[in-house]
Design a protein around this nucleic acid. Structure first.
Length: 916
RNA sequence: GGGCGAUUAGCUCAGUUGGGAGAGCGCUGCAGUCACAUUGCAGAGGUCACAGGUUCAAGCCCUGUAUCGCCCACCA
């Protein structure tokens, strides 16, 4: 074995080994366990969030597989309609082309090519991460089989009246030229203006003033509304106003929507361009005048002067014209929410079009129930509140998109505008009783990406066929996902799963946080702060990293700033940490919070942890290879102790994994390996292997190996590669069957050995007491010290005898000797272990003043602790009310501190008398 | 406007039913053949955001405040 752990040398080959042997496929059994991989978008490559999520899922999957469950981790990718189409369009743009140049068919072909490329990248990355997914059942949302399922669901919902086509206002992205669902619109607070405009009364008696943030929509106004109880305007209701710049006359109406306290208390009503105004228009039967086209430029409904102008140009022109006509009362600065498309970032327009919708209320009702009655559980539980809140106010889901990449809507139109829905054209004709003579044309639109994603938990398993996988693995066990897609995806899967499978798609939803950079910023290409998980695994030099971060930017002008920040943060590039260190880091970060700051210090520490494990194993092999081993532990206290401590660790790991607290499980493993197995047990073993008889040594070797083998198995779900590598070398020594650690049983806690734990606590107390004296008095670590022992009980004498070897080696003690209470100890440094006094004769080694200072520091601490306990016990109400065990514990503390104070004071006196 | 979350060591964060605050990194001192310097040993460092309350006892429970962050929402 190399002296240092070198991940690059070992990781690659094990994945291939596992995959070739089919170890990722379900193995059958009574306890099915299934996780659906949230299918990554085929827009490029996996980012840190994916790697984090994959680590969690893989750890859970490997853990369950080792526990003997029939385990399936179902992989796949998502076509990601808008996002992927945009990626390919951007590439075309760079070549001076566009999708319109190619035409629909060739463009879609180009996207398929890109999909293959991106899909390959993603598969490679997942393999490097060690993801134990069942590749044999890999799915893509636009696979023929899954697409067929999508059409089937569409047709079925349509027949039931849960999908309908309707003309109403949608969120229109005038750059992408498509409708968006409510979720795809992000509203942000931005600076704007509030224009106060005069609308003259037709009877010539003055004007009303309306305030608006969007003066260009004035051209589509069909009323002005006031509050029905607003006395200022009561008499005006029903009167007519002259709409500026148009010559049209519009009525004043009364509607309770209006807030009389805001602005002038008069609101212009534009039903075609505002969601509220649309509803008011419906209530009052107002005319709807659409003045925009699909680019959000003014159309032929607008007066000649403004036609063809972009909405923002038109706004300026209109304001100028109003001003010159004396109709602009004032302009105020104003903060307002601006709706933008989540992909294009263009300002979204409410726009009147024909779209397909899912009637959501009946589906939402069932989905709410499933969480209410506990059939689905959120972890952490507080997310159910978010879920319920959204479900209560949910509106019908607009599922049609005016894109080319996606599932084409299975609806056909005849020349009379009749709609015919079917699995394909023939089916549609048959259902509508139309023969071939009637021309039909298919709907040009595609479905929202999330429509097919919503079906993922059952379409991947084979639905609508009643496949073996579907029967075995639906409902799945747990969904692991981020809170950012609870609405987009989680809620919709629940709705569709209940609708088409009659059961929930998963029993638990484990919501994890979002990975951010070291400064808490969201990682994004445009900010130039993304980290590629593979760069953390393999390392990357500074120059390639800068190149990677600054190339292909949507805003190339950001490049210099990104370069500067990158050079500052990674002056030496990024070292290779290896997959296991990265995975262990992700597991340690999997806390219940929302944001996770990714700090390189953390991964470095965990790389060191891998190295520690590596070297511990190296030591064990040096001690055991070619040596005789017994088949039993030696029965020595320290062997019994490490087994007991291991049991405690295993119980903790089991509990924390069950609770989805991977951070706490990782911590328990880390502490056991480093602080108990390496720091103490291996040191004990060194002593035991130098002394005692051969059978005892063989027992210790056995324990060295079995504890190593067990902790490798416990670590394997989080660190699959290094554990397999070491385990393969342990296996022959212990004569274990089976050719991979990943198929061995996950270790279980066994009995505890309290007596051994107490013995070892005592040993550690003595060793640490001597070490402390040594360190505080600056005695060289290598120097052997003589030890006197004083006081204590018979048990202390017995232990001192029994553990003399271990004590002398670990504490570097030359000779140990019991002395009476009357011994002359004034030239000794002292440490206390309970009633036992450890005395190190200094014989002029050390300045008395230094020892005095040391003792006084300790004394101060002990006195403070003593006071604290004494005060508590003097409090009548504490003694009367606290549970007996708590009071007793306090009495013990008082006694200990009392004894320590007495001993320290006596020693101080002795030293001081010596000084005089 | 509503909801959720955060506030604990210099930094990043744990702290599961209330009973003497912990880890990693960083910092200080010592240690260079003996598994590991990607290390070992020892140590310093905290008014648990603030103010009230409940309790014998509060980082933890209750009320309120402040700061930061996220989500949702139709004030033109």
């Amino acid at each position: 074995m190399d002296k240092s752990y070198n991940p690059g040398a070992i990781e690659q080959r094990w994945y291939q080994f596992w995959e070739e042997r089919g170890y990722f496929e379900p193995r059958g059994g009574d306890h099915p366990y299934c996780i659906m991989l949230p299918p990554p978008n085929v827009t490029g490559s996996l980012h840190m969030g994916h790697a984090f999520q994959d680590t969690i899922m893989d750890a859970l999957t490997r853990w369950q597989r080792m526990k003997g469950s029939d385990t399936l981790w179902q992989p796949g990718t998502d076509h990601a309609g808008i996002a992927t189409q945009m990626v390919v369009e951007r590439q075309l743009l760079a070549q001076g082309s566009s999708r319109h140049d190619l035409g629909r068919e060739r463009f879609v072909e180009a996207v398929w090519e890109w999909k293959d490329h991106s899909g390959d990248t993603i598969s490679r990355q997942m393999r490097r991460l060690g993801a134990s997914v069942d590749w044999s059942n890999h799915c893509f949302t636009m696979d023929e089989r899954l697409s067929d399922a999508v059409r089937r669901v569409f047709v079925s919902l349509y027949r039931e009246g849960l999908i309908y086509r309707g003309k109403r206002l949608v969120n229109w992205d005038p750059v992408l030229h498509t409708a968006l669902s409510d979720l795809e619109v992000l509203s942000r607070d931005e600076n704007g203006k509030l224009w106060h405009i005069r609308y003259p009364r037709c009877d010539g008696s003055g004007h009303l003033v309306v305030a608006t943030t969007r003066p260009e929509t004035l051209l589509g106004d069909t009323a002005v509304a006031v509050h029905p109880e607003d006395e200022r305007y009561l008499e005006l209701v029903g009167a007519e106003l002259e709409l500026p710049l148009t010559g049209r006359r519009i009525p004043v109406i009364a509607d309770p929507y209006v807030d009389p306290a805001f602005g002038s208390g008069c609101v212009k009503i534009t039903p075609a361009h505002d969601f509220n105004d649309y509803e008011i228009g419906q209530r009052h039967g107002l005319q709807i005048i659409n003045v925009l086209d699909e680019n959000a430029a003014l159309n032929e409904q607008a007066p000649e002067a403004y036609r063809g102008l972009d909405r923002f140009e038109a706004r300026e022109r209109i304001v100028a014209d109003l001003s010159s006509q004396g109709l602009l009362e004032k302009v105020e600065e104003h903060r307002l929410m601006i709706p933008r498309g989540d992909r294009s970032h263009a300002v979204v327009e409410p726009y009147l079009t024909d779209q397909w919708y899912v009637k959501i209320a009946p589906l939402a009702r069932e989905a709410v129930k499933a969480v209410e009655d506990g059939r689905i559980r959120f972890v952490p539980a507080n997310w159910d509140r978010t879920y319920f809140d959204w479900m209560e106010r949910i509106e019908d889901w607009c599922i049609s998109r005016q894109l080319w990449w996606g599932h084409r809507i299975p609806a056909w139109y005849d020349d009379e505008g009749g709609i015919h829905v079917g699995h394909d054209e023939a089916d549609a004709r048959q259902r509508s009783g139309l023969d071939e003579s009637i021309p039909l044309r298919q709907d040009e639109d595609v479905l929202d990406t999330w429509f097919s994603s919503a079906l993922w938990p059952f379409t991947t398993l084979g639905w609508p066929q009643e496949t073996d996988y579907l029967k075995r693995f639906y409902p799945t066990s747990v969904l692991v996902t981020g809170f950012d897609i609870i609405f987009f995806w989680v809620a919709r899967m629940i709705m569709m799963g209940l609708k088409f499978m009659g059961d929930v798609p998963f029993r638990t939803v484990y919501i994890h946080g979002l990975i951010r950079d070291a400064h808490g910023q969201k990682m994004s290409k445009s900010k130039g702060n993304v980290l590629d998980p593979l760069d953390l695994i393999d390392g990357i030099e500074l120059e390639p990293l800068v190149e990677k971060r600054t190339s292909g930017l949507m805003q190339p002008q950001m490049a210099p700033a990104i370069e500067k920040a990158t050079r500052r943060e990674f002056p030496n590039g990024i070292p290779a940490y290896g997959t296991d260190a990265l995975r262990f880091t992700f597991a340690s970060l999997a806390t219940t919070g929302r944001d996770i700051r990714f700090d390189l210090g953390r991964i470095e520490g965990n790389r060191n942890f891998c190295n520690k494990l590596w070297n511990a194993a190296r030591f064990v092999f040096m001690q055991t290879e070619g040596q005789s081993l017994s088949s039993e532990p030696s029965g020595h206290v320290v062997d019994r102790w490490i087994l007991s401590r291991q049991s405690r660790m295993l119980e903790e790991v089991e509990n924390q994994l069950t609770a989805y607290r991977l951070d706490l499980a990782a911590q328990a493993l880390y502490e056991f390996v480093w602080n108990e197995y390496c720091d103490w047990y291996l040191e004990f073993a060194k002593v035991l292997l130098q002394s005692g008889d051969e059978s005892s040594r063989a027992g210790t070797r056995h324990t060295l190996l079995t504890v190593l083998e067990t902790l490798l198995r416990a670590l394997h779900p989080v660190m699959p590669f290094i554990t397999e590598e070491i385990w393969q070398r342990v296996r022959p020594l212990l004569g274990i069957d089976g050719d991979s650690i990943m198929l061995r049983p996950f270790p279980e806690a066994e009995g505890l050995d309290e007596a051994a734990e107490q013995d070892v606590d005592w040993i550690k107390g003595v060793v640490q007491g001597v070490r402390r004296i040594r360190s505080e008095l600056n005695l060289p670590p290598g120097r052997l010290l003589d030890l006197w022992l004083q006081g204590g009980a018979d048990a202390d004498r017995e232990r001192q005898q029994r553990f003399a070897d271990v004590l002398s080696q670990l504490a570097r003690i030359g000779s140990a000797e019991w002395v009476g209470d009357d011994a002359e100890t004034s030239q000794c440094a002292v440490a206390l272990v309970g009633d036992l006094k450890l005395l190190i004769p200094l014989k002029g080694l050390v300045d008395v003043e230094e020892e005095l200072a040391r003792l006084n520091r300790q004394l101060e601490r002990e006195r403070a602790d003593y006071e604290k306990s004494a005060n508590k016990l003097e409090n009548r109400r504490f003694v009367d009310n606290a549970p007996a065990e708590v009071v007793e514990q306090e009495r013990q503390r008082l006694a200990t501190h009392q004894a320590n104070v007495d001993n320290l004071e006596a020693q101080v006196q002795r030293l001081e008398s010596l000084r005089d």
